[in-house]
Design a protein around this nucleic acid. Sequence first.
RNA 1: GGCGCUAUCGUCUAGGGGUUAGGACGUGAGAUUCUCAAUCUUAAAACCCGGGUUCGAUUCCCGGUAGCGCUACCA
Length: 514
Amino acid sequence: MPDSAPSPAKTPRVRFAPSPTGYLHVGGARTALFNWLFARHTGGTLILRIEDTDVDRSSEAMVEGILEGMSWLGLNWDEGPFFQSQRLDLYKATAARMVASGHAYPCFCTKDELEQRRQQAAAAGRPAMYDRRCRQIPADVAQARIAAGEPAAIRFAVPESGTTSFTDAVFGAIEFQNAEIEDFVLLRSAGVPNDRSSSLGWSNGIPTYHLSVVADDIDMRLTHIIRGADHISNTPKQVLQYRALGAELPIFAHVPLILGPDKTRLSKRHGATSVIAYKQMGILPEAFRNFLALLGWTTGGGRKQILRDEKGKDREFFSSEELIQLFSLEGITKSNAVFDNDKLAWFNAEHIRAMPVEQLSLRLEPFFQQAGLHPSPEKLLAVTPLIRERIKFLRDAVSAADFFFVAQLAPYDPADLIPPKGNLTSDAALAIRILQHVQQVLATCSFDPESLDQTLRQAAQSLGLKAGPMFQTIRVAVCGRKNAPPLFETMAVLGRELCLARIRQAEENLQPLA
RNA sequence: GGCGCUAUCGUCUAGGGGUUAGGACGUGAGAUUCUCAAUCUUAAAACCCGGGUUCGAUUCCCGGUAGCGCUACCA
């Protein structure tokens, strides 16, 4: 049996533990999401812990970036944020306990020596593991050297034989040979990079990741560790420490990685990896959550049946409430998943369409502001239903609807005013005739979609033209483009004055072609 | 290199000893419409390879291959 089973009755405590050496990226966001869904599903507690023990690479700005990403995604936590850099005493005490119990020992090898030996080992084709030479040093000798101020790291004394194993909630039983695990460093020595706190003299007092995760996970009474599968190989080092400290093992649930389209690990060169970039594109957080949740998780996990809709098709569109209700560790997939931008765009479009217009128009507003357009709330609300089926990203709303909000249309090709084939003639003269006639009828008719529909179809009839091609002329005149929302609704929103002005302008634009 | 994990349409996935291997995104075609979308219909598209086990394997087992991860006094 790999380990003692944790008592299942406890209410779950989970954590998201990013390292502030970068912004919140897509992979981290999904890990955070899974932890959040799990906590909310089980009524457990989500803790946010900032792993900033790499002083050289961590920054305040990145902490803020991560917090911004979390709040945009709507992932709230219950405890924290805790900063590991402020919990150094815990790590020192934890290391001391392991030294005292003989599970850890001081190592006086310098970084250079280690590097040299590693290279020699590599050249000789030997495994590049630490040779454990300082483990031989008698305790009293080591104590004396430390007392004399000789820099030392603390290493964990890994058993030289046997195996270490654990049961992963996603991957099942995983076993490692102890002989393959090196005596890893728990506490860094002095004079080594990351030297900011010389509180111990011989050590800089800063733990490595291996120590700080375990010390904190125990201290924070975490029951489940949900994190990226890149940590599977680290897990035995942690299990060993749990044992050394006499602590109960949490349940590990490793989540497969997210890859780029070329199937390598997702990184900057794949384009946007910061979740904030998705915010800026106009992805809705609820859509992002939906998309991310289904990357590496399905409703059909374990013995459950996949969720189907009325037509018997697998459901993929979920509100966040549904995700919370449905989420389970059993549904987590084992294999890595490629991040598919097209599918994300589709999810976003679906969520856009599912959203009440009032809400959508509020979400759209900042994007117009950013583009230098300042629609009134009323007008934006009127425009929103006209474009909501035409945009995949909120940002697209600007290019789809800018003509509603500008005084002067952007220049367009006057040739576009000429109605497409479908009428006997199709030239500039015809376009002018249309525009002139239309100006007359529009001067007096009611400006609601129904009346405009009726009026303009009548106009086509009296001109002896097919309505469709003729509408195209009006559309270009009024919108300044060939593709736009439905004509009558659009005109109704624009109003009589603006429509007439633009049609007059179009007539002028056409003169050179006539 | 060593160790670990994984392997179903291009992508996300369902399924599971006997199935027409299901769905979604994307792609093609068609319908509809005042354009563009949306919507509807439809088509093409997958069980990595080799051995077992079995009456029968895509499914179970083993091996190979490939991909990914780890291999730091990074996390």
